[in-house]
């Protein structure tokens, strides 16, 4: 039981980096970017092939992160320069990335890196921990670095203009900010984290799969939603960032429980979709209920 709990936490912190990426677009920039499913797998695929080429695994992580960034940059260009709605731009990139990811993996659906040295095997060596615990450690370290980085960035003059772009685009443009560039930057940064997360998952699982990003966007949104249940009252950005990773850990714990209850891992797609729907629909239901109650008391 403890083992599967720790396993879920390990998955949670690694995917949590992806959730931080989704947080940037979905929560800060107010842009629904669906590149995720593709760029996550791109990060993983790029990591696998670079690691197989005997490149230093830390550099492989950085290359995978850049690859994710390129995916985001393309979506950003489609959205800001070609004026394609963000959702469609993301879907188009994601669709195209499927072909590209297959090419990266050498036309194979999955590629194993079982006997390759990675950051996790390095950490496992250093700390004498088993592979999955060392993976959790890597996830925790990277998540903390990402949270600190994002928190610092958002408090700067430049970071404030990112937040303002998501909050009131017309206003910040009237104050001299090129909001197209801000969105381009934000979507790129978001997908860099997503690619990084995908690469870490490949380290953890010891193989890359072309379909590994399937449903990632919904997992991410569900994680953000779950985190908000616990940290709704906090407006501090550091806590909200932490809340996303925390939500992701809880998501994977729920997933472990669901599997233990006899459902299949694939059922999680449906369950997470339902979680997101409930979270998005809740405010509307609440409002309707409040209206009905008011109507009743007036009558």
């Amino acid at each position: 039981m403890l083992g599967s709990l720790l396993g879920a936490i390990g998955q949670g912190v690694i995917w949590g980096v992806m959730v931080l990426g989704i947080f940037i677009t979905y929560k800060i920039l107010n842009v629904s970017d669906l590149t995720v499913d593709g760029s996550f797998a791109t990060g993983g695929a790029v990591f696998a092939v670079t690691a197989l080429a005997n490149i230093d695994p830390t550099i492989c992580l950085i290359i995978a992160m850049m690859a994710g960034g390129v995916c985001g940059f393309i979506t950003g260009l489609l959205h800001t320069k070609c004026k394609i709605p963000a959702i469609l731009a993301g879907i188009l990139t994601q669709l195209g990335l499927y072909s590209i990811n297959l090419r990266i993996l050498g036309d194979k659906a999955n590629v194993s890196i079982a006997n390759i040295d990675t950051n996790i095997t390095f950490l496992a060596h250093l700390t004498n921990l088993p592979h999955s615990r060392a993976g959790m450690l890597l996830g925790i370290i990277v998540s903390i670095i990402c949270i600190i980085f994002l928190y610092s960035l958002l408090g700067t003059e430049f970071g404030a203009s990112i937040r303002a772009t998501g909050n009131n685009e017309k206003m910040i443009r009237a104050l001299g900010v090129n909001t197209d560039n801000i969105k381009l930057f934000g979507i790129t940064l978001s997908n860099m984290l997503i690619g990084l997360s995908g690469a870490m998952l490949v380290e953890m699982n010891k193989y890359a799969d072309v379909g590994m990003g399937k449903g990632a966007i919904v997992y991410g949104l569900a994680s953000i939603v779950i985190g908000e249940v616990f940290f709704r009252r906090f407006s501090n950005f550091g806590i909200r960032l932490f809340s996303s990773v925390f939500g992701c850990i809880l998501f994977f714990i729920i997933r472990a429980i669901v599997i233990r209850l006899g459902l299949k891992a694939n059922d999680m797609q449906l369950i997470s979709a339902i979680i997101v729907v409930i979270a998005l629909a809740m405010p509307i239901f609440k409002e309707n209920m409040a209206m009905r109650n008011r109507g009743a008391s007036n009558a």
């Binding site: 960035l153 408090g155 700067t156 003059e157 430049f158 970071g159 404030a160 203009s161 900010v177």
Partner: peptide, 8 residues
């Protein structure tokens, strides 16, 4: 210019 290295 809005600097990424200066607190707002």
């Amino acid at each position: 210019n809005r600097s990424p290295f200066r607190w707002m």
